[in-house]
Structure formats: structure tokens, C-alpha cells
Amino acid sequence: MKIFCSKDSLLSGVNAVQRAVSSKNTLPVLSGILISAEQQCLRFAATDLELGIRCEVPAQIEEEGVIVVPAKLFAEVVRKLPDTTITIKEQDGSITIYYYQSEITLRGYDPEEYPLLPDLIDPVSFNVPTVIFKNMIRQTIFSCAVEENRPVFNGTLLQIEGSNLRLVATDTHRLAYSISEIDNPEDANFSGIIPAKTLSEIYRLLRDEDEYLAISFNKSQIVFQFGLIFLVSRLIEGMFPNYKQVIPQTCETKINLSVRNFLEAVERASLLSHDKSGSNIIRIKVESAQLRIDQTTELGKISEQMEISMQGKDVMIAFNAKFLIDALKVIDSEQIIFELSGPYSPGVMRPLDNPNYLYLVLPVRMS
């Protein structure tokens, strides 16, 4: 292998695939990045056997070839290179990087041992506008569970039914739901749980200039293609809970709130809500067209009051402040409807001007 390319090209390739590199190192070769030069194209690929990313960058190929380089070391070297044309040669399982009158040689791994990223057989495909899908990820992914004892909650449910595309995420304490209309000329149907890590990578890698994202899938894997990026992910096995059953169809109290004012009030109250147990609970009282957040802890005392418009009963309820803040930060509307049904029933936030999004959060039972 012998190639010529810019530092920026190398850096974009490394940055695109590096997070798919295995951190567990069950196979030493998986701690590397596969670099192949062929047909005037330089390809980078990495996988941890659950997520795989492939990326193409521009380069001048003088001799074709393939090598697996240690990901972390190679990335650090590339970031330290000067902004000039870089020459890379591969020989006897090592690569030498030439710049100005200097050179660095790195030992590589045998590319024959590196698992290839699979191409789906007879996949079903459809396209989604990038702007829509990025926003749907942003408004749902934070509700995925972090603990790994129940894998179905570590991902987001993606459903395609007719012209509807849905993303649903829950950690059992809260649930975020987003739906959009898409063109689905082949009438594809799909329901699968995508790991949160996969969607985080897609969100990171998608650029505004990528107008459309192509999604292909089969029963066990899903592929996302955009720009010069190819990303393949396994689907999480298991049954996602019936989210429709937990969304209340009626409510006893309906409140119209300013998103910004409510967010700022909750953030201020949460500063005093951390007690010795590490909880982050705030108490909300709604009565007489007023919302109050009163907080007293060993740290101090705060009383927040907001004028609101409301329908229905007065209510006193407690929530984990972080769960409210996470949702309020991703709601793009200026106003929300907050639906409540007493101190033990879930609260539901709906943007006033967007019927295609909702956020459900369970209250905290107070003694």
C-alpha cells in the first residue's frame, strides 16, 4: 500500500469510525482500525461486533493494500501530524507515515483476522430526511436506561407503519415518544430495538449537508447510510413493552406552561433538592391558576411561583427534577400542556404546537 492524502482526510476517517472500536479487546485485532486502499479510495472501518462503521475519504492511491492499525495510537499520531500532504506506506505488517523529512512507523495487525462488516442480504430500505431523524433521536434517546440488566431498555424502539416513523425510549421511570411522516413507497414495515450507542453515533456523524439517511434492515441487523458513512448495528433481542398501554388517555388536571419559565424554575429548585440520599426530588403544587415549587433542605430554601392557565383539579405532586429538565431541554415549542391525574399517576408533557411528541414521567411517592 502507498497513498497520499491530507491530514484532514485521515482525521475525518479516524473520527468517523473510532467509537466503534472494541474497548473490551476480546480479540486484539478488534482494538484496531481496518484501512484499505483501492480504486482511488481510502476506506476506514471499525467494529466491536455489535456496531460497525465504515467511512470513505479522498486520497491518491499509488499502490492498493490493506492494514489494521492500533486505533488509539494511530488516532493520536494523526492528530499530532502537521497540516501537509501525508504519505503512508504499508510493508510487512507495518505502516510508515511520512511528513516533511520525518517518519513514524507503527506495527499493525493481520487484516485477514479482522471481521468484515456484513452487507445485508435482500434488505428492505427507505429514506428519511436527516433533519427529521436527528431531531427525533435528540428528543427520545435521553430516556434510554443506562443500567444493562434489562437490555430492551438500553435501546430505542424504531417502528415503521405505512407513512409513520416512530421512535420510543423508556427506562421504566419515563418515556419519550416521537412520530413523523415519511415517504414509504414500498410500504415497508419494521419494528426493532436499536442500541442507544448506535443512535448516539448516528446523531454525532450526521451532517446538515446529508439531506437524506437511507435505512435498511432485516430481522437481526439495521444499516444506516449517509454521505460516505456506512453504519451497521445489531438489533437488541427481546420484547419492548407495550408503550401505548401506559400513556393515559384522560387527565384530571391540564396546565398550560411556558417551557422556558418552567425549565428555569425547575433548574433553580433542583439546586437545593439534593439531599443526603442523593435524590433530586422537587414538589410541585398546582392550585388557583398558580404553580408553586417549594423546596426546603439542609442546603437552604427556595419558593418558585408561576402564573399558569389550568383546567381541572388542584394537585400536589413530586418528580425527579432531572427527569423534567431532560425533557424540557429538548422540547422546541414555547408552550407545553402538562397533564396530571393526582399525586400517584404519571405526568404527560405535550408541546402545544406539536401533536407528534410526548413525554411521560412517573411521579415520586412522598411520605
Rank of each mutant, 00 (worst) to 15 (best):
V286H: 05
N242I: 10
V17R: 07
D210C: 07
A45N: 03
I141V: 13
F338R: 00
D183T: 15
E113R: 11
Q225Y: 03
T96S: 11
P111T: 08
Y100L: 13
S258M: 07
I88Q: 02
I179N: 12
D92N: 15
P351Q: 00
S270M: 07
Y344V: 14
L51Y: 04
E62T: 12
I132D: 11
S12D: 14
N189V: 14
N127S: 14
I255F: 00
G300P: 10
I3G: 06
S125I: 07
D208Q: 12
S180K: 14
I337L: 04
F226A: 05
S279D: 10
T87D: 08
S333E: 05
G32K: 03
L340H: 01
L291F: 03
L116A: 13
V364F: 10
I215A: 05
Q101K: 14
P248Q: 04
D187E: 15
G238Q: 09
R260G: 11
E252R: 14
C144D: 08
K244C: 03
F133P: 07
P123V: 05
G65F: 05
L328Q: 00
E56I: 06
F44R: 08
A289T: 12
L213A: 10
T130F: 01
E147F: 03
P346I: 01
T170L: 05
R174C: 05
V330S: 01
D92K: 13
I88N: 02
S220I: 08
V57F: 01
M1V: 10
F126R: 06
D275N: 15
T172G: 04
M310E: 09
Y203I: 06
M366Q: 15
K329R: 14
P248E: 03
G312I: 02
A265Q: 01
T172C: 09
I193G: 03
G278V: 07
T170P: 09
V17H: 06
C5E: 04
M136T: 08
D183I: 14
M316P: 08
D294F: 13
L34S: 10
Q245R: 13
E181M: 12
N356P: 05
Y359F: 01
I229K: 10
V361M: 01
V124H: 15
N135E: 15
S288W: 06
Q139G: 04
K285T: 12
D326G: 01
I337G: 00
Y344E: 13
S163V: 09
F153P: 02
L235T: 03
S333L: 01
E339Y: 07
D8T: 14
L257W: 00
T96R: 11
L10C: 09
I97S: 05
V128Q: 04
V128E: 06
M316F: 09
R43F: 05
I141W: 03
Y359R: 00
L27H: 08
E186M: 12
D171P: 11
K80T: 15
Q245Y: 07
P248L: 02
L362D: 07
A46S: 10
A16E: 04
A169V: 10
P355M: 02
V78C: 08
I86P: 02
F319Y: 14
I284R: 01
S6D: 02
